[in-house]
Design a protein around this nucleic acid. Sequence first.
DNA 1: CTAATAGTGTCTATAAGACAATATTCC
DNA 2: GGAATATTGTCTTATAGACACTATTAG
Lengths: 222, 222
Amino acid sequence: MTEYEKPIFTVDVVPITIHAGRLSVALVERTGDPYRGRLALPGGFIHVGEDTSAGAAARRILRDKASLTQIYVEQLSTFSGPDRDPRGWSASTAYFSVTPYDRLKSAAEAGMITLMVVEEAVGLPFDHDVIIAAAVRRVRDKGAYSDIPARLLGPEFTLPELIAAYGIALGSSVNPAAFRKKAMDRGLIQEVPGAQRRGAGTTKPAQIYRLGDSQMIYDRRF
Amino acid sequence: MTEYEKPIFTVDVVPITIHAGRLSVALVERTGDPYRGRLALPGGFIHVGEDTSAGAAARRILRDKASLTQIYVEQLSTFSGPDRDPRGWSASTAYFSVTPYDRLKSAAEAGMITLMVVEEAVGLPFDHDVIIAAAVRRVRDKGAYSDIPARLLGPEFTLPELIAAYGIALGSSVNPAAFRKKAMDRGLIQEVPGAQRRGAGTTKPAQIYRLGDSQMIYDRRF
DNA sequence: CTAATAGTGTCTATAAGACAATATTCC
DNA sequence: GGAATATTGTCTTATAGACACTATTAG
């Protein structure tokens, strides 16, 4: 068999969250060679002896660079070509993660990460602008029929909070009545029976929910 | 920067077609080292001086191994891990292509490729069983709201042919009246105004259509 | 005319959006 | 009671599935 020059293979992660009511990404300062010191997506090489898959590498990177564990991670796409990395022909398998801001707060306050609103995260090294745009598109496309936006919240939430999260993730307003009906019918959420209230004060308290078993995926067939 | 052992990076393609009324994949006999002589998905290494992206490599592989050019190719997912390739830690970005059988016929008759019904393509080298299953799932998931099944046909087709293709691709029967209405309303297909007939003989001839501008993607929002 | 398939129209069930109406809390 | 938000119910509209009916060809 002919031997070919091996391309560079890396993993990048787009850590998505809601910060101050806006869909945001967590960026890290590059410590390594190209673009050292610049803000970019957390990423890195495969640790051949340690990572059991590219997805596992993505989780390791999130853990090491943003102290994030136990969160939703999904493969996005693989970006490749001779010019995207100055070191040579490269392929990067990109993942995105979805977390409540709470989980990122201490890393942000420690300066490990910098949050940017997705629309303002431009001019980044490599093709990270393109990767972020693809992640946002995925969230918007899948958001309306999946539980991804719900993962922007903690494990318990009220319906108004959930509706707000869907609105922010989808970038469009959400019909509360239709949302409720659909979410309940499809089993996206379940009431937390005991405690029913929450919220800051002066108004009617809302029921607390958790994610249900269903992910609200449904299909359309002819 | 620490140097890490580079993983192997390859590209694999799942060439999907309809053969004898069944959803099928084209496999090739491996000429290279692991699993030499076995049937497997067409695939290979990046040619660093030649390929402008992994998708371009996928197209090159289709051209070289199955004489296929100018067809629909879509990135599926990247499969990776320490054990999927006996040569070591590897990642393979998988693509699938969708073509009418006509385009594969001469390669099949020349013995370059072997067609197998997707359900029967099991026990293949590497994790190609998993890759094929993922491709079939993608076609079935996206099929109901995209033009992918239409690409299993040539550029001109009748409505009954199109409905049959959707049925085979989706693995379920299709309501002709509903399909027609939806496909026309959404602009999936356009009448070919001049010639209106075709078909073998003894029955009413059908109108010929082409793909329209729309790809019939639509979204659901709350 | 008959057989066979192409194509159309109608009815029904379902789901989503709009929007009004009701409920519950704090003050 | 009043303000503010939560929650529910009703009406309308769009779409898909079921299914029957009409159309067009060869023989």
